[in-house]
Design a protein around this nucleic acid. Structure first.
Lengths: 226, 226
DNA sequence: GCAAAAGTGTTGAACTTACACCCATGT
DNA sequence: ACATGGGTGTAAGTTCAACACTTTTGC
């Protein structure tokens, strides 16, 4: 079936966002293979016959970070004829959100990977910069109406950390009081007894995102919105 | 280059939305080829070596409707192993918005195409129903913050028509006064002298979307929102 | 003259924004 | 004792939602 039609190489590329408690960053690798050897690039890999495309993206993400069960969403497919000068490749871009404190530094050293602040990105190969720009806009839109920001934080986090994260994502400052009011009013965070003393003398209370409560509220017509 | 990697069939499928001044509808074709001959399906086609994937989508849309320069946006790629039982195909879904009064009935008869109301869709082959559901949600989100609804209307339209369209897209009614107030306050519609007498005795004033004004306002930080 | 759709303003409620001081702690 | 970041409430402004009647015209 379909034998008369042309076939193509299909790859996945991963836009990996991480938050190091200060800045929103992107994980890139220095290519040690042709073409474009030595230049910065997104982590990618060719699709195999044995896997769904989503699985390919999970595999590629795992190869670089050693992480599984990570928030991973397809961005879109890129398929201009000349996007890769070494051959026709249809690339399907995914973006991932990870707690960048948690990933495997050992593995990523193998790939010569490093984190870049979003406003000091290196030159990237092919159309990877286009993918990244699109991913940033998508991340902003998604974060405005879905509770995925938490994917970038450790399981327990403080409200100042959360606020800083959103300020990084949206590129603007929020009023501390209004931010807390809004977030807490949603009733989807559980306040813990513990405090985090990293950020200040006084220490800030830790919170956890309560997915069950969120799901329950969603079924009652609640809408998350920052 | 890349020779050791597997290649795949790549196709595009088009989710074609149309508005017939009453209802939001989807254009499907009855397959007259295997597999799944005789069942309803989205219009699709295999990618050719000579074209970008966006061009492939334009070609497929043109084949069925005879229309060019249509709003067409990529939805995402679908690549589960078993999505097409006749062979491994990576399908890239696009959705299009057309004024369904304007398309070529001649051509589409060849393909045994017909329009279906969104809440009475036929069974669709493969994962086409999943694509359509995703396209509907995407359309709703896009229409909320971008002036793409106009793509579904003729160049000149009345406010009652526009309101009906948005009610169809979002699946809920709006208050007539509030809707007019909001739309007109944006200042992106030009009121014409002519009236459209189709819908009523009295007749309703025709308006045009003013893209230049919209673009100018966008540069000044304006945000479209319904 | 009547049926059918087009057009038009106001008010209360809800939400958003702006803003300043005290608290707890480590050094 | 002081420097640092954490935590808290209120008032004004803005936006949103609800609501009913008059106009025009073809029949």
């Amino acid at each position: 079936m379909y034998r008369k039609n042309k076939k193509f190489h299909v790859a996945v590329d991963c836009i990996i966002f991480g938050f190091d408690r200060q800045e929103l960053k992107l994980l890139c690798i220095k290519r040690d293979f042709e073409p474009e050897k030595g230049r910065w690039s997104l982590m990618g890999g060719f699709l195999k016959e044995s896997e769904d495309i989503d699985q390919a993206a999970e595999r590629v993400l795992y190869q670089l970070t050693g992480l599984e069960h990570i928030y991973l969403e397809q961005l879109q497919a890129y398929g201009k004829r000349e996007r890769d000068p070494a051959g026709r490749v249809i690339s399907i871009a995914y973006y991932a959100l990870i707690d960048s404190v948690r990933f495997d530094k050992q593995i990523s050293r193998t790939y010569d990977a490093s984190w870049f602040s979003l406003d000091h990105l290196p030159d990237l190969v092919f159309d990877h910069r286009v993918m990244v720009d699109k991913a940033i806009r998508r991340l902003q839109r998604r974060c405005r109406t879905q509770p995925i920001g938490f994917e970038l934080l450790p399981e327990k986090f403080t409200l100042p950390q959360l606020q800083l994260l959103y300020e990084e994502i949206f590129g603007r400052a929020f009023d501390k009081r209004n931010f807390r009011k809004k977030i807490l009013a949603m009733g989807i965070l559980n306040k813990l007894e513990e405090k985090d003393k990293e950020g200040s003398r006084k220490g800030a209370y830790l919170y956890q995102f309560d997915k069950d409560k969120y799901d329950a509220m969603m079924n009652n017509g609640f809408n998350f919105e920052i």
